[in-house]
């Protein structure tokens, strides 16, 4: 097999490819039912816009999950950042938009720092810590917002323009999500510290013995996750222009689902942000497509559930097969050498 065909074969086998194909299939089917789905005046725009916020949370989740941790608080960080951004505009008229955006994002960073410290210094499992901070952050949000909400009229137009505007036909929010994705993809693929994250998730004990700065790296992933959730919060406020205390509720599980569907191993060590991002696109697109093809609302959850279980079963099967194949490959190549020697 030539290098090109083997590379092609490897590409076909990758999870990212099959998820991307699934997205296309969903779009094609939905478009057959209703041509507005992809080609309508807003169709193409919505195709790009709808997944943007979930993409950010999914890649945030992927970075954390790759290290064999989890961040369940992403949705609450999103909610708190979104509300804080809105409140800054209402309580502080005339504030420079860019400053408010930065502060909104930094709030997310700060909340991520708290998660990171609790997980890496106090050494409590991330599942427990972030489940706790999920409630705490959301609780603060609810206590602060009460039953009030931020309305579009409270927000300056240059801010809401981010949610509605576009660059060369691509919505700004999508551009932001793409930039964040590209930076993280490069970091995880080509930076030494990014590769550390895979090593830590693959075998935490070995990473410790190897002398990798495990605690520092894990702390870092929570800061990244918090920051991305903060960006997602600001984007949420810009896009919907109405923010209540429940903004983003439930998205923590969507983000985990997107990462898992996209091939990020739930026990760490493997997966890419590309997969997680595509997983998020698939989930959002399915959610939007189901009503179009006439499937009732309550089935949507079941479809997502089936996708998650399918993805995990697929992972397990592929892992076992890969292990067997890799063992066999090694054995046959050694015996060839033994044979050649004698």
């Amino acid at each position: 097999m030539s290098a090109t065909t083997s590379r092609l074969a490897a590409l076909v086998k990758r999870r990212e490819t099959s998820v991307a194909l699934a997205v296309i299939v969903v779009i094609v089917i939905a478009t057959l039912f209703n041509s507005n789905f992809a080609f309508g005046s807003d169709g193409f725009r919505n195709l790009l816009l709808t997944p943007s916020i979930l993409v950010l949370l999914a890649i945030a989740q992927a970075v954390v999950v790759i290290t064999r941790n989890i961040d369940l608080s992403v949705s609450a960080v999103l909610g708190l950042s979104a509300y804080a951004t809105g409140r800054m505009f209402t309580d502080w008229p005339g504030a420079p938009t860019i400053l408010v955006i930065v502060l909104g994002i930094l709030l997310g960073t700060g909340l991520g720092v708290i998660n990171g410290l609790l997980v890496s210094v106090a050494k409590v499992p991330a599942l427990v810590i972030t489940l706790g901070t999920l409630y705490i952050y959301r609780g603060i949000d609810i206590a602060w917002a009460g039953s009030t909400r931020i309305n579009a009229s409270d927000l300056p137009s240059d801010f809401t323009a981010i949610g509605t505007g576009s660059l060369f036909g691509i919505p700004w929010l999508t551009v932001i999500a793409l930039i964040a994705f590209a930076v993280l993809a490069y970091y995880l693929g080509y930076a030494r510290s990014g590769r550390d994250l895979y090593a830590i998730g693959s075998n935490p004990d070995a990473a410790e013995l190897y002398g990798l700065p495990v605690a520092r790296r894990v702390f870092g992933t929570f800061v990244i996750s918090g920051t991305l959730s903060g960006i997602a919060g600001v984007m949420y406020a810009a896009r919907y222009a109405t923010v209540s205390a429940t903004a983003g509720s439930g998205m923590e599980l969507d983000s985990v689902a997107a990462a898992v569907i996209g091939g990020v191993a739930i026990f760490g060590g493997s997966g890419t942000v590309l997969g997680a991002a595509l997983g998020a696109v698939l989930l959002s697109t399915i959610n939007r497509a189901l009503p179009t093809v006439g499937i009732q609302d309550f089935w949507q959850q079941a479809v997502v559930g089936a996708l998650i279980i399918g993805a995990i079963v697929l992972d397990r099967v592929l892992y076992t097969r890969a292990q067997r194949a890799l063992t066999k490959e090694r054995q046959s190549s050694s015996s060839e050498r033994e044979g050649a020697r004698s």
């Binding site: 693959s202 075998n203 004990d205």
Partner: peptide
Amino acid sequence: QEPTLFPDL
């Protein structure tokens, strides 16, 4: 004694 590898890498 126990190998300390990263199986996914």
